[in-house]
């Protein structure tokens, strides 16, 4: 389990990294935390000719307020996100989800941007991004643009990132009042790839009806799966237990088309969507009612 030979670069600025990426094209891979890429290389399933190591890019390692929003640099370690008071305050769903990622050793090394750009359908962070309507800021050698998350995840391990683009910054908008959130997942062991993961963000109006519902699942499709039908059913309704269960049931039956593998059949995954969909929605509603977020 030794990787095939490759050229290695360790740029010190984003501009330098973008120049290298443009120069080497599709033969190059970006190395962030390396928690997926390095094992893939050791198995020789990935044999990039060139590795561009982003770990010296201090400019991509930050957590800071941006008006009411929150900005997190793409190379910020998951462990830093987990321990950030600012994240806990302004992005409580992210704060709740990060401990589910692997183990502390993995989060010490793994980055927020690396996981989002990798777009593993079992990963936690893409789910959170989609649930929270994040904006993903990317750059190439000449331009910068920001991509709404609804357009970012385009398929299995596929994103809207261009071949010469690097994800530099993640922007999470402010949480509206009367909003609750929850994250949960079922995994064989803590830290394993989830059999199913789920995030819910629910905003209530003054009459206690759902104004906005985002329910997102991992491990049931090509990427994070937004449960449109479940949200449609709940919006405008009082989210009592029956409504929440019905919405999660709708997600299981109509929003997801889960795969089967050696760990879980599609039928089992549907059951888990129903169960943890219900659980995260119920907890999000409860938090929204309690005004946990102002």
């Amino acid at each position: 389990m030794k990787p095939a030979p490759f050229e290695y670069y360790r740029p010190e600025t984003v501009d330098e990294a973008l120049g290298l990426l443009a120069e080497h094209g599709s033969g190059a891979k970006l190395l962030a935390g390396g928690q997926s890429l390095v094992p893939t290389m050791n198995f020789r399933l990935a044999q990039p000719a060139v590795l561009i190591d982003l770990n010296a890019l201090a400019e991509l390692e930050h957590i800071e307020p941006d008006g009411d929003a929150l900005r997190i640099g793409a190379m910020t370690r998951q462990r830093q996100v987990e321990r950030s008071a600012l994240v806990a305050e302004r992005a409580p769903l992210l704060h709740e989800a990060v401990p589910f990622i692997g183990h502390p050793q993995i989060r010490n090394r793994g980055t927020i941007g690396g996981s989002i750009a990798h777009a593993d359908p079992a990963a936690e962070l893409p789910v959170v991004m989609l649930a929270r309507r994040a904006r993903l800021h990317v750059r190439n050698r000449r331009d910068a643009r920001s991509i709404p998350v609804d357009e970012f995840f385009t398929g299995l391990f596929a994103t809207a990132l261009g071949p010469e683009e690097i994800l530099v910054d993640i922007e999470l908008p402010a949480v509206p009042p009367s909003t609750g959130w929850a994250f949960d997942e079922v995994a064989r062991r803590h830290g394993d790839f989830a059999l199913v993961g789920a995030a819910a963000v629910v905003t209530l109006d003054d009459s206690g009806r759902c104004r906005d519902v985002r329910l997102v699942f991992s491990s049931v499709g090509d990427g994070p799966v937004l449960a449109h039908e479940a949200a449609r059913q709940l919006e405008g309704e009082i989210p009592d237990d029956a409504a929440v269960r019905a919405a999660a049931g709708a997600a299981a039956e109509r929003d997801v088309d889960p795969p089967s593998d050696i760990h879980a059949s599609a039928a089992y995954r549907r059951q888990l969507v129903r169960v943890i969909g219900t659980r995260v929605l119920a907890r999000a509603v409860e938090r929204a009612r309690n005004g946990s977020v102002s």
């Binding site: 064989r188 059999l195 760990h263 879980a264 059949s265 039928a267």
Partner: peptide, 11 residues
Amino acid sequence: LSPNRLFEMIR
């Protein structure tokens, strides 16, 4: 007895 198998048995 995996959870997947147990799920099947319960079902």
